[in-house]
Design a protein around this nucleic acid. Sequence first.
DNA 1: GACTTGACTAGAC
DNA 2: AGTCTAGCCAAGT
Length: 123
Amino acid sequence: MPEKSDKNYRERVYRIVRSIPPGRVMTYGQLAEILGDGYTPRTVGFVMHGSDDKTPWHRVLNAQGGCSTRGIVLPHDKQQRMLEAEGVCFNDRGRCDLRTYLWIPGEKTRNRAPSRKTTLFTN
DNA sequence: GACTTGACTAGAC
DNA sequence: AGTCTAGCCAAGT
């Protein structure tokens, strides 16, 4: 149980993000839900903004399976490229299939399903 | 201490 | 399928 220290929750976020294996991705909402203490995707995003090089921030995507870097200093292509290097396939719209690549902590690693026509989860 | 901004999301139109 | 709105929390001003 964290004591709700100032920067404790941030480390918690980093820790979770670091636990994401290569070739897998997580969403801000998912992270917020894991944190649970009333944290929201916004907060997670803000934390990720100050992530270190040790944190695989590129494995964190938005709920739509795309990069929400909002064109700050990070070229969205960069993140996509890094993920592609790890085996994540993106469609023409720059979105990956979360149903296939979404990582859920605690779940067993399952083989990556073959690209099923790049159908989006929320059709 | 109030106001604004931000690497978000879900729901409504 | 795309656009708009409201809710949410933390940090900076």
